[in-house]
Simulated scan of single mutants.
Amino acid sequence: MTANVNIAIKHTSLLISGALLGLLHAGLANASGYPVTVQSCDRQVTFDHAPKAAVSNDVNLTEMILALGLQDHMAGFTGVSGWKTLDPSLRNGIGELKELSPKYPNKEVLLGADADFYFAGWNYGMRVGGGVTPDTLAPLGIKVYELTESCIHVMDKPKVSMHDMYNDLLNLGRIFGKAEQAQSLVDGYQQDLAKLQANLTSQTSVPKVFVYDSGEEQPFTSGRFGMPTALIEAAGGKNIVDDVQKSWTQIGWEAVIDRAPEVIIIVNYGDVTAEQKINFLRSNPAFENIPAVKNNHFVVLEYVEATPGPRNIKAIKRLAEAFRTAS
């Protein structure tokens, strides 16, 4: 009888200890903020801890990572030198981190880096139906967070806005346990933008704006769901192809001529320089009556400024000044 009682007491003690240990672990998890669940396009992704070997694709996404000081959580980056120049400030920020692939990575590249997290977007490191997607990486233990602006390629979403970029920073903050830093960063951007926009009320007109990315036979531009539309509107302008239900797309030159933009934004990257693009527009007789060409109202944005990322606010300030000059 006594032996049975002792065994029962020991068993009860073990159960209580186990329960207390479970509560302790739960308390520690809650104290650390994990697990966290974020919305990524049409998916919810849960993280039990901060990624330790993250990979980001493209310069703008990598700069988001750097803005939050997450270098120590990174295994490397991809998709920069293949067709874009690595900005000196970005090189200084990433320090010794390696570019794992000059263009979009394949699964082998990510596995070779022991990656546990991939920050990319649709047409920013992933393609619909391609070999690297959230579905193909999940079995490999690599979680994916998708750039909000790019979600239009896989789901319906509202028109692009600055909230898209803010949303990514806030979600990255939660994923990596830096929610307060992310909120502080976003608050600062919003305050800067509010000050700028308070001075736009005196603007007499809303300039019509065309985004010229590339292409001579047909221009590649940004429509309703591309980040330049959000930048243009925040600066007090109107994208002439705001009615085109695309993020980045080709259109015909006839539409550009008919809609007569007063300002043309040149996106600078790749082998064809911004100056060469401007010279092409100036030298073609078909464009001579476009107000922006006639009045030499061009403004150059670097690729990293025209896509979602920390440089968007400064880009808006430059656009606002260019619009003021053109009005």
Rank of each mutant, 00 (worst) to 15 (best):
A50H: 04
R324F: 06
I65Y: 12
N239S: 10
D114F: 00
V186C: 06
V263Y: 09
I232T: 10
H153L: 06
K314Q: 08
K246T: 14
V244L: 01
K178S: 08
E275R: 11
T62L: 15
I65K: 02
G129R: 03
G76H: 03
I9Y: 07
H297W: 07
R259D: 04
R259F: 10
I240S: 09
N30M: 13
D192R: 08
G22L: 15
L196K: 14
W248F: 15
L70P: 11
T85C: 07
T273K: 13
A260H: 12
T307C: 05
F280K: 14
V160W: 10
P219W: 14
I251Y: 02
L193F: 10
G121C: 10
K246N: 14
K98F: 01
V109E: 00
V128H: 07
P308G: 05
Y124R: 03
T229S: 13
C151K: 06
W253E: 08
L100G: 02
A182G: 08
L319Y: 00
A315P: 00
E108P: 01
Q39N: 11
S202F: 11
P308K: 02
Y303A: 12
P51R: 02
N268K: 11
L301I: 05
V186L: 11
G236N: 07
F225C: 06
Y124K: 03
P105I: 00
N284R: 10
L70Y: 14
N296Y: 10
A54D: 07
N268T: 09
S40L: 11
G93R: 00
R91Q: 15
A138G: 00
G236Q: 08
L100C: 00
A234L: 03
F298M: 10
T12M: 14
T12W: 15
K178N: 09
G309C: 04
S161M: 02
D135E: 15
F287L: 12
T273H: 10
G93C: 04
M155Q: 15
A182F: 05
E99R: 05
S202N: 13
G130C: 00
I65L: 13
L147E: 09
A292C: 04
F176I: 12
F323P: 12
A67H: 08
M74N: 10
A235D: 09
W248T: 09
K52M: 03
L61W: 00
V38L: 06
